[in-house]
Computed example of a mutant assay.
Amino acid sequence: MDVVKIGYSVILLLIGLFIFIAPMIQKGDERKKFIYSKAQSYAFMVVIGILVLEVAQAIFYMIQEKNSYKGFGVSPIMFLTLISIIYLFSLIIYRKKYGD
Rank of each mutant, 00 (worst) to 15 (best):
28 G>Q: 02
73 G>I: 07
90 S>I: 00
60 F>V: 08
26 Q>C: 09
85 I>E: 06
17 L>H: 03
42 Y>V: 12
11 I>S: 13
33 K>R: 12
21 I>K: 07
9 S>A: 15
2 D>W: 08
49 G>H: 12
36 Y>G: 05
18 F>L: 12
45 M>H: 09
7 G>T: 07
29 D>A: 06
95 R>F: 00
23 P>H: 03
84 S>Y: 02
14 L>Q: 06
74 V>G: 02
36 Y>A: 13
86 I>P: 02
93 I>Q: 05
25 I>C: 09
4 V>Y: 12
99 G>N: 14
100 D>S: 10
32 K>E: 05
35 I>T: 10
58 A>I: 10
61 Y>A: 08
57 Q>G: 06
1 M>F: 13
16 G>S: 12
61 Y>Q: 13
97 K>A: 03
72 F>P: 00
17 L>G: 15
2 D>C: 00
91 L>D: 03
64 Q>H: 03
56 A>Q: 07
85 I>F: 06
67 N>H: 04
54 E>R: 02
8 Y>F: 07
81 T>W: 05
70 K>I: 05
46 V>D: 03
33 K>F: 05
28 G>Y: 01
40 Q>R: 13
17 L>I: 10
62 M>Y: 04
76 P>N: 08
47 V>R: 01
82 L>F: 15
14 L>Y: 03
32 K>S: 07
31 R>D: 03
73 G>Y: 13
86 I>K: 00
56 A>N: 07
73 G>Q: 13
97 K>L: 07
67 N>E: 14
76 P>K: 02
45 M>V: 04
64 Q>S: 10
37 S>Q: 14
92 I>T: 10
46 V>C: 08
11 I>E: 06
44 F>M: 14
40 Q>P: 01
9 S>E: 04
77 I>R: 15
92 I>R: 10
85 I>H: 01
62 M>T: 14
98 Y>G: 07
26 Q>G: 02
69 Y>R: 04
60 F>Y: 14
68 S>F: 14
36 Y>W: 09
50 I>T: 09
27 K>V: 05
79 F>A: 05
79 F>M: 09
63 I>Q: 14
87 Y>F: 08
49 G>L: 11
49 G>W: 04
10 V>W: 01
13 L>F: 13
46 V>I: 12
25 I>Y: 11
26 Q>I: 13
9 S>N: 06
87 Y>C: 02
80 L>Y: 04
14 L>M: 08
56 A>W: 11
98 Y>I: 02
56 A>T: 07
60 F>I: 10
